[in-house]
Design a protein around this nucleic acid. Structure first.
Length: 151
DNA sequence: GCCAACGTTGGC
DNA sequence: GCCAACGTTGGC
């Protein structure tokens, strides 16, 4: 079992959206970065645990936890020309992007803020806090996972 | 809303 | 395959 951190803008999809329908799988679509896609496609597996990180908002940080219930499959939004994630260069035969499905695990009683994460020396290896990193899907070690929850 | 740092695109 | 121009990300 692996651990991950997925970034999201809460206005689009927040931990509260998961909490509202705790038994409904949420399609994690719209990842349009090759490095992030490769993680999704090659390494994210059913049962993996995911930190849901809120970005570009008032309260920036890890807001909760979700779990992978379906591994990578072609991201439906790439074929939908009404979607902001539409990709004209993708086809059924040759999809470019993948999605996974997640389900709610918990909302953290208190958000783990980016400030706190940055201040923690154990988190220095996390791409999230590395200068210039814009990865939206990143691996988290078991140690980092535990340390983060202890913050 | 600014802007630095990245990633992608496309002409050559 | 280089690289300038452009678009995006995401904290501030």
């Amino acid at each position: 079992m692996n651990y991950w951190l997925f970034k999201t803008e809460p206005e689009e999809c927040s931990i509260d959206d998961f909490a509202r329908e705790p038994n409904k799988a949420i399609v994690w679509e719209g990842v349009r970065n090759y490095q992030a896609r490769n993680f999704l496609r090659d390494s994210v597996a059913v049962g993996d645990q995911v930190f849901i990180y809120h970005s570009s908002c008032k309260l920036i940080g890890v807001a909760g936890i979700a779990k992978v219930v379906r591994a990578a499959y072609p991201d439906p939004s790439q074929f939908n020309n009404q979607s902001p994630y539409f990709d004209a260069k993708a086809s059924d035969a040759q999809p470019r992007w993948v999605a996974v499905d997640l389900i709610f695990v918990e909302k953290l009683p208190q958000l783990i803020s980016l400030d706190k994460i940055k201040a923690c020396p154990e988190m220095a290896g996390l791409p999230l806090v590395q200068k210039g990193s814009r990865l939206s899907v990143m691996p988290v070690t078991a140690q980092q996972w535990q340390d983060l929850l202890n913050l």
